[in-house]
Computed example of a mutant assay.
Amino acid sequence: MKHRLCIALSVLTGGLLLLLLLGLGPSSDAPLRMVFASSASSASSASSSSSSASGRDPGVHAAGTSNESASPDVSAAPGPSLNGEGFHLGDHHQLPSRGADNLFFIESSCAVGDPRRGIKRAAMNARQGCAVESAALANPNSTVYFLSTCPSNEGSDGEQVAKEVFSYPNVKSLQVELSSYLNDTPLGEWILRGSLNESSYPVEHSSDILRLATLWKFGGLYLDLDFVVLRPLAGLGWDFAVAESDGLVSNCVLGLSARGVGREVAQSCLGELLARFDGRQWAYNGPYLVTRVLSRLCGGAPVSQMTAGKCRGFAVLRPQSFFPFYYPRWALLFDEGASDSTMELVLRNGTYAVHAWNKLSRARPVRAGSRQPYALLARRFCPRVYSSAGDTF
């Protein structure tokens, strides 16, 4: 009997050793980065090792669930591993569902290079937080996703803003690792060639790529992080873009359904990136790319005539719907002297959201309590962020 037991143990030990030699044993180098943002209610009580109650991947809690008995040190606890979609998963985060009512914002500052090399970024600045909060308030039936390429920065500036934003039950945060995220898209092999690393505008071009890949993967609506959303967006449908000018379609806001013409547009946009990516030009892979793709879809129609009837169900909306004033007039948002006329232009012109033209306006402060139009909009449409932002917004 003892002899047989020894033989059995020897066989078992040998088998385990063979598995380890073949590389099939447990990995010790799984990514350990944490998603930086969590809801205010879960920041100190959620356990990163719990499994989802909704059947999603381990390490992801269904919205509104938590492990109240555990209070791990988030900065020291091992983080979740990268899942098959290219996300780093953490507590109280929910993967997008294909074809669902998804609304996406993307922070691409850390997409290229090593995001851990001494970069100290705010968890979320106030204007970004205002965009996300205003979208969540105006669209309570949508799931609003904040996808970030940056790692956790516990204790950084803006952490309170992030907590306010993620206190909304329909707002979720996920950290994205670019190459893994693109792996199951037509850009999977292209991203490994390093063209993006050689771009003159890596942050902007990463954002161009990520928004198109996200809509290709899941479908939904994408918005830039410098909007203030004023009205529900559901009535616009899913397959639409917005004219930035008479000859250009913007990629600041883009709705693409997961099937039909939206899926076709997403596929064509990724194909255009593969064939004609140009890292030397700022807007070539963004609004100009979208304009080229839609021109083909709409039979060469000018932007002003890209209607659903001419574009097989895809519509290009008039500029006023999201750009009540064009970029040369961006300073109107900061001018107290023109406050009344600017607010009337914004609120009484059928505008769904206001674009702040952040590339031009980001250095101009918004003073809390002032009559600057940006401050008035923030107080009304993103009240939690506005109240937590301090003296300047």
Rank of each mutant, 00 (worst) to 15 (best):
K2G: 15
K2V: 10
H3R: 15
C6V: 15
S10D: 02
L19A: 10
G23Y: 10
S28T: 12
A30E: 12
A30L: 15
P31L: 10
V35F: 01
A37P: 01
S42Q: 08
S42P: 00
S45F: 00
S52R: 02
S52I: 05
G55T: 13
P58T: 11
H61Q: 14
G64K: 13
E68T: 10
E68S: 14
P72H: 10
V74L: 13
P78S: 08
P80Y: 03
G90Y: 13
L95C: 08
P96R: 07
G99N: 06
D101V: 07
G118I: 09
G118L: 09
I119M: 08
I119D: 10
M124Y: 05
A126W: 09
R127P: 01
Q128P: 01
S148Q: 05
T149M: 05
G155Y: 09
S156R: 02
A162I: 08
V165I: 11
Y168C: 11
S173H: 04
E177N: 07
S180W: 09
L182D: 06
D184Q: 14
D184A: 15
R193D: 13
L196K: 13
N197W: 04
E198Y: 06
P202Y: 11
L210F: 10
L210E: 02
L212N: 09
L212F: 08
A213V: 07
A213R: 12
K217Q: 14
D226I: 03
V229D: 13
L230W: 08
P232Q: 05
A243I: 00
C252D: 04
G255Q: 00
L256P: 02
R259Y: 12
E264A: 14
V265Q: 04
G271L: 04
L273C: 04
A275Q: 14
R280S: 15
R280F: 07
A283R: 06
Y288V: 09
L289M: 06
L289V: 02
V293L: 04
G299D: 00
T307I: 09
G309H: 03
R312E: 12
G313S: 10
A315Y: 06
V316E: 06
L317I: 01
L332T: 06
F334I: 11
S339M: 07
S339I: 01
E344S: 07
L347E: 13
Y352I: 05
V354F: 11
H355Y: 12
A356Y: 12
A356R: 09
K359F: 06
A363R: 12
A363H: 14
Y374I: 11
L376F: 08
R380I: 03
Y386I: 12
T392C: 01
